[in-house]
Design a protein around this nucleic acid. Structure first.
Length: 158
DNA sequence: GCCAACGTTGGC
DNA sequence: GCCAACGTTGGC
């Protein structure tokens, strides 16, 4: 089992939105970055655990743990001329973009803000805190994943 | 709202 | 294949 971090802007799709989608989960559509696509297409497997991260909000933070619940399939939004994610170069015969489906597992007992992650030297190597790094889907080392969960428990005690 | 960092596009 | 121009991400 691998571990991941997936970013979402809460104004667009929040942790609560994910919880509401229930067991069938949410297709992670709209990813238009090849590296992120390749992670979904080639490396993500059903059961992989995901840190659900809220970006572009104050403060940015990890909100919950999700899991991959369906393997990569074509991103239907790319075919939809009305969608902001429309890509005319992607066709049903030859889909350029794919998405996995993700469902909520559990909210963290306390959210873990980005600045706390930055200050934790055990997380110094996380891609999330690497300068200039802005992948919306990124692999997470298991130790880093567990450390985030530990921080959430610790923050909940205060 | 600003802007650094990065990815993509397209002319050549 | 190079690279300038442009668009996007996302923290601040």
């Amino acid at each position: 089992m691998r571990h991941w971090l997936m970013k979402s802007e809460p104004d667009a799709f929040s942790w609560d939105d994910l919880v509401r989608t229930g067991a069938q989960g949410e297709p992670w559509d709209g990813v238009r970055n090849y590296q992120a696509r390749n992670f979904m297409r080639d490396e993500m497997q059903v059961g992989d655990r995901v840190l659900f991260y809220h970006s572009n909000c104050q403060p940015p933070h990890v909100a919950g743990v999700a899991e991959v619940c369906h393997p990569a399939e074509p991103d239907l939004a790319a075919f939809d001329a009305e969608s902001p994610y429309h890509d005319p170069k992607s066709t049903p015969q030859n889909p350029r973009w794919v998405c996995v489906r993700v469902r909520a597992v559990e909210a963290l007992p306390a959210v873990v803000p980005l600045d706390a992650i930055r200050r934790n030297e055990r997380l110094a190597d996380m891609l999330l805190v690497r300068k200039g790094q802005r992948l919306s889907i990124q692999p997470v080392d298991p130790e880093h994943f567990d450390e985030i969960l530990r921080m959430a428990r610790e923050l909940a005690e205060d």
